[in-house]
Amino acid sequence: MRKIKKLHKAVYAPMDDLVTYRAIPTREVEYIDPFLFLNHHGPQVYKAGNRGLPFGPHPHRGFETLTFILDGDIMHQDTGGGKDIIEAGGVQWMTAGSGLIHAEVSSDKFKQEGGPLEILQLWFNLPAQHKMTSPKYIGLQKDKIPVVELDNGKVRVNVISGSWGEVQAPIQNLSDIHIVSIELQKVGEFVYNIPAERNIFFYVVRGTVKVNGQTAEKLTLVEFDNEGKEVKVEASEDAYILFGHAQPFNEPVVSHGPFVMNTEEEIHQAFRDYQMGKMGSWD
């Protein structure tokens, strides 16, 4: 079995009236190469006539984002031409690359009617050779995501990026990052093998699971060592997890706010380019 290094509890980091827990970075773990950042928004219920999500226009460069909409919705728009509303069960993948400006807000319908909201956003680094690639956006509603059922239907794997066994995901990214979300009924279990040299991302969104014999409750990031291949997960109660793996880049990571590059000078250049309008303009 793959050895577990440590369990990390996400820290409470609210944003205005948005309930938020941050799994990485924290004081205990900066990042798990190339997984840089995870914010878990909600779960909470918005009243009718709310302001919705607070993520108005802002720039990004040098990385990619994957947003999971568990409840509620997100209205996305960016200066690369992406425009979409993704509802519960769907995902959004955005390659910021050389830079763009985007906004992630709630739809007019959600702001008018309110309702439950739970959203997670995961950031992936881009290797130096792809930092300045052209921006790209992909939005997938729930019915466009392949599902693999295991353990007589007690485990449902939503295949989002890369592959799961022989099932190819609808998103094939630049860095061979594999990501799934997994819904487990109580006592549901699965085993998956990942080469020891690849880093694992494992976050418990809801419920409680046993992973390689250790109990991990909701809002827990499981950090693995690079020894062993097998990951065995057993659900102690109904649960939902994010699970992925990737080859580490082993490159310098320099980040400042919305930009993630390899050197301080590249960060300064990103700010200059943004100020000069090279990432687009927002009407």
Rank of each mutant, 00 (worst) to 15 (best):
G139A: 09
E264Y: 09
I138Q: 13
A216K: 07
P127L: 01
E264D: 10
K136T: 05
A128N: 08
S236V: 11
Q185C: 02
H178Q: 12
A196D: 08
L219V: 03
A216V: 12
P252E: 02
V204M: 03
G188N: 06
H256A: 14
I182E: 05
N173R: 11
R156Q: 15
L174H: 10
K142F: 00
H256Q: 13
S181V: 09
T215V: 15
M261E: 09
S161Y: 08
P135N: 04
E149T: 15
R198K: 12
G162S: 02
V204N: 01
A216N: 07
G244C: 03
E227W: 04
K229N: 12
A239E: 05
T220N: 01
V157I: 15
V253I: 11
H130K: 14
G213W: 14
N262C: 01
I138T: 11
Q129V: 14
E227S: 12
Q214F: 11
E183P: 08
D151I: 07
F202C: 02
N158F: 15
I177S: 01
N199W: 00
Q168K: 15
H130I: 00
I200G: 04
K229R: 07
R156M: 12
D151F: 01
V233M: 06
P127K: 09
L126Y: 04
P252D: 02
F190H: 11
S175H: 06
T263S: 00
V211H: 06
N212F: 00
F259G: 00
N226S: 09
E230Y: 10
G139V: 11
K232V: 09
K232M: 07
V254P: 00
